[in-house]
Design a protein around this nucleic acid. Structure first.
Length: 583
RNA sequence: GCGCUGGUAGCUCAGUUGGAUAGAGUGACUGACUACGAAUCAGUAGGUCGCAGGUUCGAAUCCUGUCCGGCGUACCA
């Protein structure tokens, strides 16, 4: 279905052509001056230069040609050369009625759907999720849903950090604590125990301890590097221990992501790329792309015209172990072979942008991905506290994700109880939905690329531009619909300003969705539903729906708010949360 | 040093790819519940868009310079 703005541009372009000008000047945009018009066209001003005429004259000629057009209520040419347009009420309601019955509200998806691998989440095994992981999960989940809504085949891959030095650190620490375990006995030949020699909470304590120790204890650091090497070269004891770490960790991760309503299609990690490393290195070597530097094996990725210095990509460290860039490249090789993606999209902290630029260049140079495979890194900013510094707990430690979620949920639960709208057995479920909306909307409404201030008090306040505001709007609509008790689908031409504004807002659904999709920008979607919710609330305030005496008129109102509700619920689903029945 | 990125109301942020009088929220002040839910709505106050040049009919937006902040800059991830 053609977008309203394109439909209007078509009409105005035809008018420009009819008046003897290039139709390209007939591009219509949403008016920046709602007091003067709903849409505007500025084409007469650039056209004036080409045709050596007064811009107003050109605009006026176009206006004359549009005089009889049924799409417009008014067409006015004003001062320098603006063309101000107001839509005919019947034209607008017709458009909305078409949206009501159209698939995806008339949104045009991809004509040629793509296969996309989405790399997000990126948790480290054996480490608790903290607020830093929140952004990748929330933004990635939303982008995944957005891409799918446009018809693409998206494979969400959690890409766990399960293969680096961190694993060696844990293994080395375990060895110091429990040296008698069979995993450390080279002579051990029987089957290893099925039960892990640790719990998830022990694991979560072991890593930071080991990490801190390696920084002050050289001998321990050496042991950790050695354990990393042993693991990566298939030592049976290390491998068995690693499997325990994985099992315990993954179970915990699934539970945590489940709470966030974030799900992955594949749970691969860096370790899954391991089989691809050796053939990849061999291939790169055969191509003559690798060289030795200070004992390490590196690949140059500088390109003609580089303004900055581009360090080479290190693929094998001087101690023989592989690292981040190696596994990322091997993972690309794996993805290319398993999925043949048209695009690989990474939702990872923006501080890693140099790393990704190196990896992307290396992947292209080494022929690891096809030339047409699109590689993109969407880097997000840091989540800061109110002081503008990276978010910490009041005690100054790293805020665990579980605790953050618990704090918001507790606050919301209190509020839901106070309001006494929902019954006691529904309080928890309702509070969970509201908390999720507050948390996710609070994050997604900011530009992903920028750092943002996470202020629990502000998000929890629920006033103004927040997730709960959106939910409240939906809940209000639901309440009226259930009281009305019938279906209605026929929207009538608007009679009041509030009604027309709401309809205009609805009509712009596709525009905003496409912008959000094009830029992978959930904040665009947030801005849209905030505007739409505002329009709904204003309309709601000015219109008595249930006491309306004209039954036909009333059914029109119901049809209008039903469509509003469907669109709002569709959008919040794309953002990754949902509305309760009451709140 | 080099590179990337940001600087818009007291605070937190938008700004539809160059358009008319720069918008929201929050905080402050003032109104609207014997009306479908007041987690709402209406209004007042608050701005040299970091600074200086330039490009043109027109700049928060594009170019140049400059100041301030954040981040990155080969064997962590």
């Amino acid at each position: 279905m053609q977008k309203l703005i394109d439909l209007l541009s078509g009409e105005v372009s035809a008018a420009f052509q009819q008046a003897g000008y290039d139709p390209a000047y007939g591009k219509v945009t949403v008016s920046g001056r709602p007091d003067l018009g709903e849409y505007q066209c500025n084409g007469a001003m650039p056209a004036a230069k080409v045709y050596h005429k007064a811009p107003f004259q050109i605009a006026d000629e176009a206006a004359q040609a549009l005089r009889e057009n049924p799409a417009f209520l008014t067409v006015e040419a004003v001062k320098p050369g603006f063309l101000n347009l107001r839509l005919s009420p019947a034209f607008l309601s017709d458009y909305l009625n078409a949206m009501t019955v159209a698939d995806h509200f008339g949104l045009d998806g991809e004509t040629r759907p793509k296969t996309i691998v989405l790399d997000y989440g990126g948790p480290n095994v054996a480490k608790p999720l903290h607020v830093g992981h929140l952004r990748s999960a929330i933004i990635g989940e939303s982008i995944k849903r957005l891409y799918r809504y446009f018809g693409n085949n998206v494979i969400g891959d959690i890409h766990m950090g399960d293969w680096g030095l961190q694993m060696g650190l844990i293994i080395a620490e375990l060895r110091e604590r429990q040296p008698d375990l069979p995993y450390f006995d080279d002579a051990f030949s029987g089957p290893y125990p099925e039960k892990a020699p640790f719990t998830i909470s022990e694991l979560e304590e072991i890593y930071p301890t080991a990490s801190a120790k390696s920084k002050v204890d050289e001998d321990f650091a050496r042991k950790a590097h050695e354990a990393t090497y042993l693991l990566q070269t298939g030592n049976p004891g290390c491998t068995a221990l690693w499997k325990h770490i994985m099992a315990v960790s993954v179970a915990d991760l699934k539970q945590n992501y489940g709470k966030l309503d974030v799900s992955f299609d594949v749970w691969y990690g860096e370790s899954d790329a391991e089989p691809y490393i050796a053939p990849m290195l061999q291939d790169l070597k055969a191509q003559g792309l690798l060289r030795e530097s200070d004992g390490a094996l590196v690949m140059d990725v500088t390109e003609e015209g580089d303004a900055k210095e581009m360090p080479p990509c290190i693929l094998v460290k001087s101690d023989g172990a592989t690292l981040y860039a190696t596994t990322d490249l091997a993972t690309l090789s794996q993805r290319e072979q398993c999925f043949r993606p048209d695009k690989v999209l990474y939702i990872v902290d923006k501080r890693q942008s140099l790393h990704f630029e190196q990896v992307f260049r290396a992947a292209r140079k080494g022929g690891i991905v096809r030339p047409e495979t699109e590689l993109q890194h969407i880097g997000f900013g840091t989540m800061n506290g109110k002081d503008g510094k990276p978010f910490k707990t009041r005690e100054g430690g790293v805020m665990r994700l579980e605790r953050l979620i618990a704090e918001i949920t507790d606050f919301v639960t209190e509020k839901v109880r106070e309001n006494q709208i929902v019954s006691a057995d529904e309080v928890d479920g309702t509070a969970q939905k509201i908390a999720m909306a507050a948390l996710k909307y609070g994050d997604l409404s900011n530009l992903a690329t920028k750092d943002y201030v996470f202020d629990l008090d502000r998000f929890a306040a629920f006033e103004g531009n927040t997730g709960p505001y959106i939910l409240y709007t939906i809940v209000r609509i639901k309440s009226i619909l259930s009281r009305y008790g019938k279906e209605a689908t026929r929207i009538l031409p608007p009679e009041t300003a509030e009604e027309k504004d709401l309809m205009l807002s609805i009509s712009r659904f596709s525009d905003h969705l496409q912008a959000a999709y094009r830029d992978s920008a959930p904040n665009v979607l947030c801005a849209y539903i905030y505007e739409l919710s505002g329009a709904v609330n204003k309309f709601y305030h000015e219109t008595r729906i249930l006491t309306e005496e004209d039954a036909n008129r009333q059914a029109g109102y119901i049809a209008l708010i039903s469509l509003s509700r469907r669109i709002l619920e569709t959008c919040i689903a794309l953002l990754g949360f949902s509305a309760p029945e009451k709140m």
